[in-house]
């Protein structure tokens, strides 16, 4: 038995080493990231519905003027586990955007109001146009942005609040800003948020911190739209496996009791 415990400890230490090595390799080499309580972390983690709806508002009123979200559709906004806007709200949101469609029977492209099945409308025609409008820097697509950055949600949350006056000794080119969480501390994007930049419908005060948290929550959902069902299914799957493991353990003991050997 002692041997088995030893073996288990060895196995666990190997596992711990692997996860340690992989997190080390991924972490950014800048200031320590700000932490906040994310409702979607943990075994039963779920999105805060209010934060998602407010986050969508921040995204669409602030970020979306430069950042695309090309893998997300308007219909997703009404789906379970997301912001869960009502069907009418989703239709209204979609209809507020002009979508280029076609060609029609005359071979012409035309614009029409958006439908829930449309993907989020792009702010720019293409990458070149986006770069031309932003001093040569391409504002990255936000569909999977939190998964595409080491530090994930904490990084985005910190970055949005990380704008400062550049310390003396650091010279910034025109159109470059200082951000203490950015890799290399230099970022093309100007500080996107300021207090009361948006007016929340639910009366929440739109501080920079609040908006950062809301929009990051929204980005997390955009990157992992099935996070809630993943957590729910995961809990059930693991409980099922544990019960089955216990049952199999006792069957094994019973079967092996016929031979003079230990398992």
């Amino acid at each position: 038995m002692i041997n088995k415990v030893k073996n288990l400890i060895k196995l666990l230490s190997i596992l711990a080493f692997i996860s340690l090595a992989s997190t080390n390799a991924n972490s950014a080499e800048t200031a320590k990231l700000l932490k906040t309580d994310w409702s979607f972390k943990g075994l039963f983690g779920k999105f805060d519905r209010g934060a998602l709806q407010r986050g969508y508002q921040v995204y669409t009123e602030v970020c979306a003027s430069c950042h695309s979200m090309k893998y997300v559709s308007y219909r997703n906004l009404g789906e379970k586990g997301g912001p869960e806007f009502s069907e009418a709200e989703v239709k209204a949101i979609a209809a507020s955007f002009e979508v280029t469609d076609g060609p029609n029977a005359d071979g012409e492209m035309f614009t029409r109001p958006g439908k829930p099945s449309d993907k989020f409308v792009l702010p720019y025609e293409n990458v070149k146009a986006a770069q031309a409008a932003n001093g040569g820097a391409y504002p990255p697509d936000m569909s999977v942005l939190v998964k595409a950055r080491g530090g994930g949600v904490d990084y985005i949350y910190s970055l949005l609040q990380g704008y400062e006056e550049a310390p003396s000794g650091i010279t910034l080119d025109e159109g470059v800003h200082y951000n203490k969480y950015m890799y290399g501390n230099k970022i093309r994007m100007a500080a996107p948020l300021s207090d009361d930049l948006v007016e929340y419908g639910d009366g929440t005060k739109a501080s920079v911190e609040q908006m950062s948290k809301d929009v990051t929550t929204f980005l997390m959902w955009a990157a992992e739209p099935h996070l809630e069902s993943r957590h729910q299914m995961g809990f059930k799957a693991i409980v099922y496996l544990i019960i089955l493991t216990i049952l199999v353990y006792f069957s094994m003991k019973k079967i092996w009791s016929r031979v003079e050997s230990e398992v």
Binding site: S19, L43, K147, M233, G234, F235, I238, L241
Partner: peptide, 25 residues
């Protein structure tokens, strides 16, 4: 089954920890 429990933890609770963030770019 014990192995599957470890497997399930990765799949359901930290599916991207073993990958690299840059691969979502």
């Amino acid at each position: 089954l014990m192995f599957m429990i470890v497997f399930a933890f990765f799949v359901f609770y930290s599916p991207n920890i073993l990958g690299h963030a840059d691969n979502y770019i």
